[in-house]
Amino acid sequence: MTVELTNYVMLSAVMFFIGVVGVIVRRNPLIVLMAIELMFNAANLALVAFSRAWVNNAGHIFVFLVVTVAAAEAAIGLAIVVAVFRRAKNVDLDEVAGMHG
């Protein structure tokens, strides 16, 4: 590969941390879930880059697994959001502070 592996890994890291910040800062649960998808995809990018660098398609299989898990997680997450906010006044994560200790 003409582009160094390091570049892809750094790119993946940047995207991952954008996702992390998104999860913490945003209050709309849908956008939080989208940021989580960003994080998944960042991991995928790193996996594909490594897989290409080492010419080993086990990485591709793992990406396949990650995509599946991400899909399942997005589905369930959205289902939870629907369940929680179906009758709520506003769609705000700060309002679901039932775990207040």
Binding site: L65, T68, V69, A75, I76, L78, I80, V82
Partner: peptide, 17 residues
């Protein structure tokens, strides 16, 4: 395992939402 995960996800979604 992916097949299993997807099945679990479907069941979960149906139950939750």
């Amino acid at each position: 395992v992916t097949a299993f995960i997807l099945m679990v996800a479907v069941i979960g979604v149906v139950l939750l939402a």
